[in-house]
């Protein structure tokens, strides 16, 4: 296996940044997220970032098209730009899994979302494995994610202690990373260390099938009581992808954009005819069922990767693992 010393990583990142737009995990100001690499930035390689990498492909606000009106006339001009090649460096296996889930949504079932696809196609993804939970709230292992391995990425780095072991997962990764930066890599025979225990575990076997019988279960009323109906969980979630489409208009011109939306907000499903999800019971239930039942039924995967972000930042400690446990223990009338 090829390898690079962690101490030399910055020289590699410098080289990549010279040629491509390089996004790395950066921490500061009480938060951490993927941001353009700058020399001297505080890189955050100790586990997942607070903000997920989903905005690299699916920005919180994205202009779709500009328009002009002139009396009765109107014109529309797309805002889809051809992005230059970018390298997304250092996502964790939980986030790699989340991108796989986003691919289902934006690239399949009859319609391809060009805004997402353009950015995804132009991105080389380099992941880093975790040898244990970086945060107590990590439970990826329970969600079928191998913490040390990542799927759907171009290059994967194994954490070998002082080195990263570097393996190409796609042809793109081989050519544009391993071959291109070959001079930075040495050979190693080091083994990936044993995986540490995760303090938070949950069994999801059969959860979808159980939930299919629980739409009307009193559990939802119970678990929803403490929910504040804010969007912290959905906005920090690497897989939550629901969006709104809205417009900014000034006089005779404007643009239409899409932006993240949250199923936790009362306004989300409100229509002139009423709201099919009028209270937090229906909204919490929909979020949980979307993650654990509906998405699995539609795309074959659970829509939770066990990154634990929602759990770490929920104002009221709403715990998806606890809800899964409650579902498993629930009596079916």
């Amino acid at each position: 296996m090829k390898a690079i010393a962690k101490a030399k990583l910055n020289t590699l990142l410098d080289a990549i940044a010279k040629e491509s737009n390089l996004l790395v995990p950066v921490s500061g100001d009480g938060t951490s997220k993927f941001a353009p690499y700058t020399q001297g930035a505080q890189l955050s390689f100790d586990g997942r970032t607070l903000l997920p990498p989903k905005d690299v492909f699916f920005p919180q606000t994205e202009k779709m098209y500009k328009f002009k009106t002139n009396g009765m006339n109107a014109s529309v001009e797309t805002a889809l730009e051809a992005p230059r090649l970018q390298v997304l460096f250092g996502i964790r296996p939980c986030d790699a899994k989340s991108i796989h889930c986003l691919d289902h949504v934006f690239l399949t079932k009859g319609y391809v979302d060009e805004f997402y696809k353009a950015k995804k196609d132009a991105t080389l993804i380099v992941s880093i494995g975790c040898n244990g939970p970086a945060q107590p709230t990590c439970f990826c292992k329970s969600m079928g994610v191998n913490p040390q391995e990542a799927e759907g990425v171009d290059v994967h780095l194994y954490d070998l202690g002082t080195d990263y072991g570097v393996v190409a997962k796609t042809e793109k990764g081989e050519k544009l990373f391993l071959d291109k930066y070959a001079s930075f890599f040495t050979e190693t025979t080091a083994q990936v260390p044993a995986l540490a225990d995760f303090p938070l575990e949950v069994n999801v076997d059969g959860i979808t099938e159980k939930l299919e019988k629980m739409f009307d279960h009193p559990l939802w009323e119970e678990v929803a009581k403490k929910c504040l109906g804010c969007g912290a969980c959905t906005y920090l979630c690497p897989t939550c992808h629901c969006f709104d489409i809205s417009a900014r208009v000034a006089g005779d011109q404007g643009f239409r954009f899409r932006c993240w939306d949250s199923c936790m907000f009362s306004e989300y499903t409100r229509m002139s005819a009423g709201n099919p999800r009028p209270s937090k019971k229906e909204r919490v239930r929909n979020r949980m069922l979307h993650k654990l039942q509906y998405f699995k039924e539609r795309y074959g995967d659970l829509l939770c990767t066990g990154c634990g972000r929602c759990l770490s930042k929920c104002p009221v400690n709403m715990d998806i693992t606890k809800i899964i446990k409650q579902v498993r223990e629930a009596d079916l009338a």
């Binding site: 903000l51 919180q60 504040l228 109906g229 804010c230 969007g231 912290a232 959905t234 906005y235 920090l236 949250s262 907000f265 104002p315």
Partner: peptide
């Protein structure tokens, strides 16, 4: 700010 409205809702 990510406009999650946690501040308002709490």
């Amino acid at each position: 700010c990510i406009r999650c409205y946690a501040c308002r809702n709490v």
